[in-house]
Write a protein that binds this DNA or RNA. Structure first.
Lengths: 207, 207, 207, 207
DNA sequence: TATGAATGAGGGTTCATTCAT
DNA sequence: GATGAATGAACCCTCATTCAT
């Protein structure tokens, strides 16, 4: 029943604050959910930030829950696409794993609000939407895991490690980025990506 | 404003479910916060689960927020004590780090409800309580980090790694346990602890 | 404010579900009002059921209220015409009363949705429309009552009965049909009509 | 989950408008539902009329729906008790039927607001509560019907009549009272009761 | 020590209607 | 003739907290 939230842009005749209404709503919701948490952000606050009324929000989104789901969807689609592209390459599996690890760190930092929301607010989605998101997330993890398994078969990675545990180990670190990373701190996204990638590779590599 | 929540036990002649009222309240609150989240758990649900009335809760705790703070306090005190004990030993720093890592995994799994609450609900504490918790947490992280720095000075651990980044890397994995670990799954707490500890050591060790 | 709702049919070349738009809207509104009640049926539901948009509805009808009024109008016109025709005959007044009673039962059952709406939703009309409907209804009742009065003058019906009370007695039964009658039950419309007519005649006849 | 709404009276120390809060809420709700209809009466209007806040209403009643259900319950209990008492007598079945008919007319008029609500708002109850009310109502109708069946077996009432149809015929008239009866009109409750009872008896009697 | 009725502010959501296109 | 985005007001309900008892 959720309406299609990504209508074409308003075409440049733009009255108001520039971007189209659904995009503005998603952007403000993302910002507020990341800051205050999903439950502490009221629909009223979102629409005020976006400069529209509640009716407009419910014209585009079926519920507050739908907004959250849409936010998840965007980031999942983005990361899945990127991982699939990296995994499909024909380079050494160690390079592919390193690159995949660095890439997810960079995109997580570039979308830090989404990252914060992701690991804090998943359980506030309605059960069925939670199931949908988990399924997409599982696909993503499986692709990542298959890289580790491939490295183990090739003798590059330590064979006794449980690949699923390694995935949970690493993605815990990634999801946690939202808790401590600050854009205005001393570390660039690429610096963190390089070190996380290095740590992951060192932890699995056959020495 | 917070009353002292840990009064002596009611002496055993207690009516009801055995344990003293404040303990029962904390236990039920922990269970419910972990399951539904802090904001979605009502005070009414907590007192019903504990078999008391609202008046009783507000007799022992100044606010719902106080309950959450107390839960944080318990787990922080526990983990700080254990880490301090491990860090104070005189064994090889690699052993101390491995042991500290394994220990925090085991206690996180043994108190999985607290772990879930910890990483999801921090931002739902009042700002000043949040500050207090963060300060305690920082002390904990600093102790952990000092083990890594010691290992670097000794030449056991790779010198170019940023110790604080390593700590955030590892504790992301630990906090994430609440998201995927299930007591009735195939892995014991000790098995996860061993593998996480192994991964951490491998990732930092000089090879 | 109400536009003329019964425009000529669109000529048969019509796109969509066959009948002209206003008729389709009235038909779906009748079905929905009978099922869910007037207040619980949204304009959105009506236009979706009719396969048009809100703009179309408001093009033909001035308001949601207008739809309800039009539904009342149709059934009132129908029943008034039929009663007038029966009352104008020259047969024995007992036969005319019996026929009128049976006829209103049959048409009430044939338009059971209208009947349900009639007795449940009158008070949801705007005051002025309510007044108009009541006036038409009064005319109808007066015609019916005059049959009873005629029978009393002729000595066929018991003289001490209050004719208006008899009318209310009988039409209570008729309006109530919507509550219990089901088309797929064991009773045909004609069977109910015969028995109701019989009960009415027996209740007023001089024995 | 509905709280018990009929606490003891407040004991005479009565601050405020006299009666206890739940009773006041039910009384005002009855008045407003009868006047405007259930859907058109807001919870805000009810609590304002009763001089309390929304929180107080929801302290005693689980939902607006519960209020309606409680109103139904009261009138059903009253009428069931009275009918059972009359049906249990040992007088001639014609007298018992006449008395039962007259009695339900009198109590329906004495509780005219409840009567109005009954026939207009039943379908606005939640499905499960509707089922409960219908079941109670069916019991009531069955008792009434058994009087007619008894009269048919005794040869007092016409044997070919369908008893259930007679019951629906008569209770249509009774439920309809709310539509036309006015306390300040020319007819006393007893006068209407006598005539309705007479009409019913005449319609079923063997002549 | 404990009760539980009552508050008051705010929660998410629905909806008839309008109007620029 | 017809669209559908947007409004704005009202809707039912929840909840942490207080306080007279």
């Amino acid at each position: 029943m959720a309406r299609n939230a990504t209508s074409g842009s308003s075409g440049g005749s733009g009255s108001g604050s520039g971007a189209a209404v659904p995009e503005r709503l998603l952007a403000e919701a993302t910002r507020l959910f990341a800051g205050r948490g999903y439950d502490r952000t009221s629909v009223q606050e979102i629409v005020e930030a976006a400069g529209v009324t509640k009716g407009a929000l419910y014209h585009y989104f079926g519920s507050k829950d739908d907004l959250l789901h849409e936010i998840y969807g965007r980031v999942l689609r983005l990361q899945t696409e990127r991982l699939d592209a990296i995994a499909a390459r024909t380079t050494d599996v160690r390079d592919r794993l390193a690159e995949a690890a660095a890439d997810v760190v960079v995109t997580s930092i570039e979308n830090l609000d989404d990252t914060k929301i992701f690991f804090r607010s998943m359980h506030q989605l309605s059960p069925e939407k939670q199931k949908a998101v988990r399924a997409e997330r599982r696909r993503y993890h499986e692709t990542f895991r298959s890289l580790i398994e491939e490295g183990q078969r090739d003798g590059h990675f330590r064979a006794h490690l449980r690949p699923d545990l390694v995935v949970d180990f690493f993605f815990g670190s990634v999801h946690h980025l939202g808790t401590w990373y600050h854009a205005d701190g001393p570390l660039s996204a690429e610096a963190v990506a390089a070190e996380f990638s290095d740590l992951l590779l060192a932890s699995v590599r056959q020495h």
